[in-house]
Structures are given as C-alpha cells and as structure tokens.
Design a protein around this nucleic acid. Sequence first.
DNA 1: TAGATTGTTAATCGATTAACAATC
DNA 2: TAGATTGTTAATCGATTAACAATC
Lengths: 220, 220
Amino acid sequence: MIESGDLAVPAATVARLPHYLRALHALEADGVRTTSSTELADASGVGSAQLRKDLSFLGSFGTRGVGYDVASLSVVISSALGLGSTHRLAIIGLGNLGHALANYSGYTARGFEVVALLDVAAAVVGTRPSGSLAVEHLDDLEKILERESVTMVVLATPAHAAQAVAERVTASGVREILSFSPVALQVPDDVVVRSVDVAGELQILAFHAAARAASRSAKG
Amino acid sequence: MIESGDLAVPAATVARLPHYLRALHALEADGVRTTSSTELADASGVGSAQLRKDLSFLGSFGTRGVGYDVASLSVVISSALGLGSTHRLAIIGLGNLGHALANYSGYTARGFEVVALLDVAAAVVGTRPSGSLAVEHLDDLEKILERESVTMVVLATPAHAAQAVAERVTASGVREILSFSPVALQVPDDVVVRSVDVAGELQILAFHAAARAASRSAKG
DNA sequence: TAGATTGTTAATCGATTAACAATC
DNA sequence: TAGATTGTTAATCGATTAACAATC
C-alpha cells in the first residue's frame, strides 16, 4: 500500500495505472468518448474486475449502466500519477542506452522534462546527443542537480559505477531513481528505485522457453 | 506456477532468478568461493528467507552450517533459466532504442545471440548499426525468422506497428517476445510477452513523488 | 420499466515472512 | 560437541477473481 494524501493504493495497482492511462489516450485518439470496464480492460491487457477494483482505490468515477467518460477518467489517473507538475530528469551515463533515452521524444507529452545529461568520458562531455542539451561532467553532479532542480534521475551507467553514483544522487536529495544497471542499489529507505533489466527480461523468457521444451519432450 | 519438466516454479521466483545469477557472478568475479543465504540475498536485494524459499523450488543445493558453493549454484540457476542452449534473437525496429539494443554487448555472455535486425525505413535497411549485422526489410520477416532459426523477438517498433508485427511473428512460430512498445499485445495463449515500458516506470516514480509531497504537506 | 454496467463484498489464490528443526 | 546455516513448515499478508446488489 502506498499512501498518497487520503488515498491508499496497493503497489500492484499503481504499477497498472500507466497501462490504463495509455489505453485511455488511445481511445481518445480514436474519438471514443465513453468506455466500459470491459473495453478499457481489454485494451489494457487486464480483466475487467481487476480494472474496476483498481479504480475503486482512487475513487468512484463511472456511471452504472453507462461506463466511464474517457476524458475525465484520463484526468483522474493523470493526477493520481502526479503528472500535473513537471518532473525534471537528469540522465546519467550516455552510452548506447543513455543516448537512446536522451533522444526519446515521449517525455514532454507525459509530464517529464530532461534537464541534464551527465557522463565521465572526455569524448562525450560537451557533445549534444539529442541536439539540444550538452553533456556535462559527472564531477559536477551535485551542482547540476541543484542548478536544474532535478527531482528524478535515470541511471544508465555501467554496473560497476551505479552504486557510487546512486549514493551521491541520494545524498543530494533526489528520492526517485530509474536504474538500467543490473545491480541491487543500496539506498536510504525513503528512496524509490525502479529497475529495468533487459538481460534479466530475456532470461525470464528463456526460462519459459526451457519450460516449453521440457513439456514438449515429456508429452511427445 | 510455471511447470518446467519436473519442477514447478512460481512466476515471482522466476523473475528473481536473474538477480541471483547476477549476484553470484559478481561474487565469483570477486573470488568468493562460498556464500550464505544472507550474503547472497543482500547482494540481490531480497530477504534471506525469500532467497532460500526461491531456491527450494529448484532443489536443495546448500550445505547446512556452511552455505552455498558459488560456482555450482551459478550453474544450477543458469540451467534452470535455460541458458545452456543459445537463444537466437531478432530485433525489430531500429530507432533510438533498437539501435541501442543492437549494440548492447552483454548478450553473448548470457546465452543470447542477435542474428537478425529488421526495419521498414529505407534509410535504415542495409546499414550496419552494430558494425556487423546488416538491417533487413520487415517485408521479409517470415523468411528471415526461418533462415536464422529465430526463437525470440525483441520488438522496438513504434506503438502503432507493434500489434501487426506481433501477429506475423507469432504466426511464424516464435513464442517469446520482449516488447518495448507500450501497448497490450494480443497474442495466442501459449506466447509469452514481457514488456518494458520506460515511460510507465517514470510514471510509477511520479506517483511515489506525489505521495511523498502529499504526506509532507499533511505532516508539515 | 428492462437492460446494462458499476462499485463492492467475499472467496480464493499466491507470495512473503518468521521461526525452527535438521544437520553440517 | 558447539556454532552456524540450511530447507521447510506454518502463519501472515497482499492480490486477484467472481459474483451480485446498487443504480443509471
């Protein structure tokens, strides 16, 4: 359960809110004004009971017998997700992945703004990977985080550097980190770390592939 | 529960196996020969009871009073994850992200090999984003999947193209998909889709930031 | 009113945690 | 033997699902 003001929302529900929001945006783009829990659930890849249950943690927004207004439900979820205010991001580490993340175009539409890029490589510092922002040196991390009022950090450094950078970042007061480094970061209790691990995802798929192969040979 | 041969492993456990494997590799690299559930759990970011419980689904590999042999536990988890055989990947969509994924160097060490790159843009087809493999046209998808015996596909296309590509890929017999497109793919029941949604992860962090702000203003 | 669909309750299911007997 | 640590049991906790009364 994550307490937000007067709301208490289960972690599993929070993790699905972005799916619902995305599905609502897609419906809006198609000109759909009103939707049902069944339609929205299908578009989100969950069951309709789960969708209704999830929404019930945020309040009561539908009309019995009718459904949900797409535009207003969209606003409800956006504001629950804190997308009203703009979140200021720093991307640390501009290798392959950091470069791609710096060029990702979807931030602004979703309430995020990349305000700083940092790296240690002399070949990278000073370049403008996304055309606009110049890469600054990691040595100046604390200064830059303060100057730009950074509230979230995206960590795309090599694994061996991640822990040290995370310590400096949290010491500077940043409390939200998205990490692409496949290591368990040790951070203060009040810091939230989300991790994306591409190799790990592939390994999970490999487990399923192996399970499939085993059941095939058992049956056949 | 995912059945693999004689094993039945909970999905939550499977999702943690890559963390354990990574932590074991780190210990190995540090020259550590033997570890305990406490040490390995700390390095993996979980509790020791959870680690022991997870391992118990794979079998019994420790020595009471002593701990676990790092090298042999590493082998146990690797083979549970099906990393003995090499998995042949195709990356579809070579925008920013696909480009970064094509250049990622960690595949081979972890039992994966990128054997094909596909896109539709004339400017990209024929180029060699990673220096070696040339990008082929999506039109030839089916032919390429068969030619290269592809077993897993990484989808990095724009969201609007993802569903159509997923249908062709599954029709060709691929049963494991890693998708970076933020849409709920409709695929046959026996196909496993793992999704990575960077914007969604940021939104989850934004929820936590909003929750923190709300509790601060309530207290202060 | 009749039909549709929400919001909520209660039941089920699965995952986590703590505690400890087994045993090296 | 004494100390350490596993593997497992049982209790707790949280998440999902089905069913349906409320109500538009």
